[in-house]
Design a protein around this nucleic acid. Structure first.
Lengths: 337, 337
DNA sequence: ATAGGTTGTCGAAGCGCTTCGACTCCGTCG
DNA sequence: CGACGGAGTCGAAGCGCTTCGACAACCTAT
């Protein structure tokens, strides 16, 4: 293993000079810089991470806490994780992957040991038990998701309230009067992850303004569950012509069941999905959808974090504006019989 | 920040004693140990990761390199990643998330800087450019996936050859004669990730023995692509009654198209999927499938790695035996007309 | 010409931990 | 009863890096 000292010797300068060449924290003459860089190349020098962390008390590592559950939004999580890792690298940081399993202890461990300089938390619950810890430490952190009380925290998330409203507007504009929301699994609501409720709230209040009637039904996803849910919806509101689906694993079942019941999409019923674009475009009907901008969320979270690490960067809530893309699954409401 | 020295002072012992209590590398009297542990508790001490890494030249971090592509097998990747993180923790290691983006440079960076003690690579190509580097370093590594030349490497993977054979056997046993393989996207074959070829080889050679006729068609996934592929298959081999699908995003389209063409599953055609159990059980027909044991793969990879880090642990290829679960999508071949 | 700045470089002091050798204290064995 | 060895503890020497103050050399302004 090549050390700083060896590079220094090889270049005929002192160790501190090499360090300053690397960090750029003091001015170095062009000649010296070149000689040092040459030596670094020739010797294949890589600074030792541990030593660096010890001396500078900065690890250049960001911790990312992902939920342990692999039952929900998996592609979205993955995409966020990868976006986080990728953009962290462009800022010179590496990413440490923590699973939710350890819970608050992980936060303690990481902040206490200086393993990471900052952290990003995903899958935040409305009243997350990790929040007090975050507030109590001076280690910067960013949440992806929105807890009930955001004071003193920085959060990045899709504006799910606006998303719900957007769906309502689109369906209202097309003349639909009775719409149904196929929600996430009941467990998601019980866990109070928030985003599902926020979507619903936004959708409901905009619907009220627009005169839409809304029926909300959580749904586990999968065919059997969807079948049951759909039956109950048409039972209660036979005139339902618009669907908003916020559960990836219910999308395809819904389309199949509608087909089976000879309800044409979009002639008889319209469907809007809240899902990643990839899902919307790969479905059996190209779906009108509000995209979940996973990449952007990851990137923004990192940017916020870096800003905090660099000193400028305030606690703020960044809500990404939803965008509705019209594809082939929504159309004018059928003429009322 | 609490340091070792402060703990030592608080407990009335020397710093080295505290260190030995923590590491257990020398015997400590019960009384002293207790006093030290008490002090650690009271002061809320967490050893500094950087200092520890510097002094011991071990970071207790495992690097995990995931592919950058988010287009394929995402849930599987995620599940593996989480399994890796979780089991690494049980062995006292944390996981550093690297994306494939940096390529071989990431390997150099990590091994050179001592950021991680070992690494796990996913999505290994047959002739991966990172392999020479791995062979040339003494840092332990494990691959998830199988390159062409495994000499000097440790690999963990599902035995895709046996998987293919298993599919052939099951369909042959049910009396099918003409089967089609819906493969991964052409890009996967071009990239030579290997697993797709291995499946096909295993399936073909067993089919030869059993007298099955096999037609293989890569498929992008999605409805349009699947529709085209299916049409061509029935065109060329109208008597096809068995399908083996190795492309998650082709499963649902295939089922929908078969339904649309009034070919009943499993009465007219049988379908076997090679996919995670979750996909198999959530599909519109409960699918007979060979599971991709993501969790197990992650766990085994970590175990191999830990073994190497602890000194015992040889280069070996661990192939997990495939298991076929019969569900509702396969049945006896229809009587020949 | 002299005081005052710049600019570029160096030496040395740590950062918090691990680990090696040394030392003390006892119990044990010949 | 003295030599011996194990158990338990300590001191000190680093691990490889950053960073601070010092200093020489040079360049302006007065």
């Amino acid at each position: 293993m090549v050390t700083l000292a060896e590079v220094a010797q090889h270049a005929g300068v002192s160790a501190s000079t090499v360090s300053y060449v690397l960090s750029g924290k003091r001015s170095i003459s062009a000649g010296t810089r070149q000689r040092v860089e040459q030596s670094i190349q020739e010797l294949g020098y890589h600074p030792n991470a541990g030593a660096r962390a010890l001396a500078s008390s900065r690890s250049n590592i960001i911790a990312l806490m992902v939920p342990l559950r692999t039952d929900m939004y998996v592609p979205v999580m993955m995409e966020i994780a990868i976006a986080v890792a990728t953009s962290a690298r462009t800022h010179g940081y590496d990413v440490l992957l923590l699973t939710g399993e350890e819970g608050p202890d992980a936060v303690r461990r990481v902040t206490g040991s200086g393993l990471a300089d900052a952290m990003i938390l995903m899958d935040v619950e409305l009243d997350d038990e990790r929040l007090p810890l975050l507030r109590g430490t001076d280690q910067p952190s960013v949440l992806i998701g929105l807890p009930a009380d955001t004071s003193g925290l920085t959060c990045v998330d899709l504006d799910f309230g606006a998303t719900g409203a957007l769906c309502a507007e689109h369906l209202a504009m097309l003349g639909h009067r009775d719409i149904a929301v196929i929600g996430e699994a009941p467990a998601v609501y019980e866990r109070h992850t928030g985003f599902a409720e926020r979507t619903l709230d936004g959708l409901r209040s905009r619907s009220r303004e627009l005169g839409l009637r809304v029926l909300h039904r959580p749904c586990e996803g999968g065919y059997d569950s969807m079948s049951l849910t759909l039956a109950r919806i048409f039972d209660e509101r036979p005139g339902t012509t618009g669907f908003v689906v916020q559960n990836e694993s219910a999308v395809e079942p819904l389309l199949a069941l509608l087909r089976q019941q000879s309800r044409a999409v979009p002639e008889d019923v319209s469907v809007i999905a809240i899902c990643p674009d990839q899902v919307a475009t790969q479905a059996s009907v190209r779906l009108t959808s509000v995209a979940i901008p996973a990449q952007e969320m990851g990137r923004r979270a990192v940017e916020q974090l870096i800003a905090k690490l660099e000193g400028h960067g305030k606690d703020e809530v960044v809500l990404l504006a939803p965008e509705l893309t019209v594809r082939a699954s929504t159309g004018p409401a059928p003429a009322t019989s």
